[in-house]
């Protein structure tokens, strides 16, 4: 089955892509570039670099802009999926949804309307186990945004490691946060992993942070042979 992966460049879409590649053919990555930093549907920090991640993965990317307004962005997503279906002969769509019924429901409806299969290979996964799996399988994940108490500035740009996972596990128990950031608490960016043909190297970056909300913005990025 030829599949298109909804791709933001964060850990969930990258890992969903890995699972899809193990079972089927991933023909393209579909990226919605949202102008709204608070998008309901689409991961936003560093989304422009998803193009270079697609190159690193060796998979064609179809990118479309969206203003990121609550329901209008769904029409943009459907248009992008429809274009990808036609261009790449897709039979199904893959998402990295874990618990968000909001996201999953909307993508399921679009797939139904487009007569496409819909796969959510991370659905309901235990989030702490999943984070450990990412690290143990060799994915190099950095935190590219924080959006909730009690995340301080030290999280911005830091790598996902066993030590950070243990902290996230503690925060889950204490504050009921979603350790994988599924509730919008944090966003990630993937620089390398077992499905990457090349790795990504950050050349320059900047941070903005205030009141438990911050971005790690990648300004310069290069592909490096592995």
């Amino acid at each position: 089955m030829k599949l298109g992966v909804l791709f933001s460049g964060g850990k969930d879409s990258v890992y969903a892509c890995r699972r899809a590649m193990e079972k089927n053919e991933v023909a393209c990555l579909i990226t919605l570039v949202s102008e709204n930093l608070d998008s309901y549907m689409f991961h936003t920090p560093n989304i422009r670099h998803a193009k270079m991640q697609a190159e690193a993965l060796g998979i064609p990317q179809l990118a479309r802009p969206t203003r990121g307004e609550k329901e209008a962005e769904l029409a943009d997503l459907e248009a992008a999926i429809s274009a990808a279906k036609e261009r790449f002969g897709l039979q199904g769509i893959v998402t990295g949804a874990i618990e968000s019924v909001y996201q999953a429901t909307r993508v399921q409806r679009i797939c139904r309307a487009q007569d496409l299969w819909c796969f959510n290979p991370l659905w309901q996964i235990n989030q702490v186990d999943y984070l450990r799996q990412l690290v143990s399988e060799g994915f190099w994940v950095i935190i590219s945004g924080v959006f909730a108490y009690p995340f301080d500035e030290s999280w911005l740009g830091c790598a996902l490691t066993e030590e950070r996972i243990r902290i996230l596990e503690g925060l889950q128990k204490r504050y009921q946060i979603h350790p994988s950031g599924e509730g919008g608490e944090l966003e990630t960016f993937v620089l390398d992993g077992p499905i990457f043909l090349k790795r990504l190297n950050i050349l320059s970056s900047s941070k903005t942070y205030a009141n438990f909300r911050g971005f790690f913005t990648i300004n310069g990025l290069q592909l490096v042979d592995k």
């Binding site: 899809a20 079972k23 991370l122 996964i125």
Partner: peptide, 18 residues
Amino acid sequence: DSLSQYEFVHPIFDTLKR
């Protein structure tokens, strides 16, 4: 062992295991 197994079977398996 389809891609759907992660979505429809593993969550039941994990719930039972836990």
